[in-house]
Nucleic acid binder design. Structure first.
Lengths: 142, 142
DNA sequence: GTGAATGCAAACTCTTTGCATGACT
DNA sequence: AGTCATGCAAAGAGTTTGCATTCAC
């Protein structure tokens, strides 16, 4: 069990949520996933493992996890929202316009620029998303 | 008529599109708008002016304008897509979690960081979106 | 006159909600 | 036992599509 899974389950218990099967399997799946998943992808993956979870329960689980800041929402503008475990190693995503695949990257200079920008604006900046769009190596025309 | 409106109408004609009423009024409205609008907001605004446009026509107009890169799509993750004229002065958006308002900003350092990052990745980066989330001055608790 | 553009309504996708059933404490 | 959690089905919201009519060329 990943550190995140452990942390998430503990937090849920501490916050007074009961340990139902659906929410726990969602947490377990997210914890062993590398990349971000949509609610439907999570449901399908769990059903493929024989877990009979309802799509609505997955959405409800994700809503709770989001409120507790245990997951990070990612809306890449494709009409579907993806979720991934919220971990320290901060990163962003790049979406392939060819195959729809998503990769992640980190960039120190980018983070610094955003941080400095936040200081400059008279807003209270809480979160930020940087979505790049382009073509992955496999989809780049020679 | 704004320079953008003029440019957009000319481009549409050049590309072989007919000058229908719906698409033209959408272009005219966008041209005199400062901030980004959703399809429904555009439809409502036009109807408030007495223009009887259908929501579907607005979506179709926006689709064409997007394909011709005459408008910029902005999905701030609120379940609604906004559009604004694509102009040279490149900028990004910050969404208020209190009132839902959207403001825009420009930042040279941020653009440079994204550009450099693009060079580093083995992807072909075509566009990027940087959405900040936080609280606007009016919604920031004292 | 021909074919694109439009507007309405229906379809579609993603997400949320109502409600009865089943599970955790 | 008392609630909370779950799953199904239905409802909602935003967007897209089918189709007959209207309009631009």
């Amino acid at each position: 069990m990943s550190a995140w899974t452990d942390h998430a389950l503990t937090t849920l218990e501490t916050e007074g949520y009961r340990a139902g099967a659906a929410r726990r399997t969602v947490v377990e799946l997210l914890g062993r996933q590398h990349c971000c998943l949509s609610a439907k992808e999570i449901t399908d993956a769990l059903r493929a493992e024989g877990r009979e979870v309802g799509l609505a329960s997955v959405y409800r689980a994700l809503e709770v996890l989001d409120q507790l800041k245990l997951v990070q929402r990612l809306d890449a503008g494709e009409g579907v929202v993806r979720y991934e475990p919220a971990v320290e190693d901060h990163h962003h995503h790049i979406v392939c316009e060819g195959c729809g695949g998503v990769a992640s990257y980190e960039d120190e200079a980018l983070e610094r620029a955003i941080h400095d920008l936040g200081e400059r604006l008279s807003w209270t900046v809480e979160t930020h998303d940087v979505v790049l769009r382009g073509r992955c190596p496999s989809c780049t025309p020679a």
